[in-house]
């Protein structure tokens, strides 16, 4: 087992955000964290990454290289900086060499000429691809993706998930991601962990745990999911 979480509780500013949560992630799995806004999904990821104090056990079976795309990392944050794509890659440590950058850019479907472009002048899809290459370049074992822009068409009919699927064929990756998109949960992930503000949590394979009743318990409203077959 790559990650084992037992009875995890997280308090922030005196408020209990996560209560007695337990789950496991195996190597090579894709796990989605599902839940309404404010349920503590990002808090959970930030706790797993060691940014927040917690009670309970978080056990990694060994030290892993982590890649993380935090929530809200969007183009607006770099738009006002005189920052080229090359500059953005040079902020990584150790600084990757150009051949390595080009290799990863091509993995996400971008050409070398994007390197000299200002990050603010990229299209939304190009920027998402650059982010994906950026996070992959240190060769992480585990990717944490906090709501990567689901709706965005990366161009050429690809979404961030079809891209990730393609990358996983080339690299052995474990992925823990947050999304609201139920299509992604069914079509892309091995396991789903649902959390809600009311202590209710479920954990298991998507088909097993995502019953209409469970979805209603989590989101507090009637939801019905029609799977596209």
């Amino acid at each position: 087992m790559l990650l084992k979480v037992n009875n995890l509780s997280v308090d922030l500013d005196g408020e209990n955000i996560i209560k007695n949560l337990s789950f496991e992630v195996s190597k090579g799995e894709i796990m989605t964290i599902l839940g309404p806004n404010g349920a503590g999904k990002s808090v959970l990821i930030r706790t797993l990454l060691g940014f927040l104090p917690h009670k309970g056990e978080i056990t990694w079976d060994k030290k892993y290289k982590i890649g993380y795309l935090p929530q809200g990392l969007n183009q607006l944050l770099t738009k006002d900086l005189p920052l080229t794509v090359k500059d953005f890659f040079n902020l990584k440590e150790p600084i990757p060499d150009k051949n390595e950058i080009v290799r990863y850019l091509s993995m996400v479907g971008l050409k070398e000429d994007v390197l000299s472009k200002n990050t603010g002048n990229l299209s939304g899809g190009e920027f998402q691809r650059v982010l994906m290459a950026w996070v992959l370049i240190g060769d992480p074992d585990i990717l944490f993706l906090d709501e990567p822009t689901t709706g965005i068409d990366l161009g050429g009919g690809e979404t961030i998930y079809s891209l990730l699927k393609k990358i996983r064929e080339e690299k052995d990756l474990t992925i823990i991601l947050i999304t609201h998109d139920l299509n992604i949960v069914y079509g892309f992930t091995d396991k789903v962990l649902c959390i809600s503000r009311k202590e209710h949590a479920c954990f298991g394979k998507p088909h097993e745990v995502m019953s209409p009743q469970n979805l209603e318990d989590i989101f507090g409203t009637k939801l019905k999911y029609y799977e596209h077959k």
Binding site: I66, G67, Y68, P70, L77, L81, L91
Partner: peptide
């Protein structure tokens, strides 16, 4: 410089880079 610039862009991105 690089570390501060990354922090300017997104603190959690910087934190996850150690």
């Amino acid at each position: 410089y690089s570390k501060m610039m990354l922090t300017n862009i997104h603190e959690d991105l910087a934190r996850s880079s150690g």
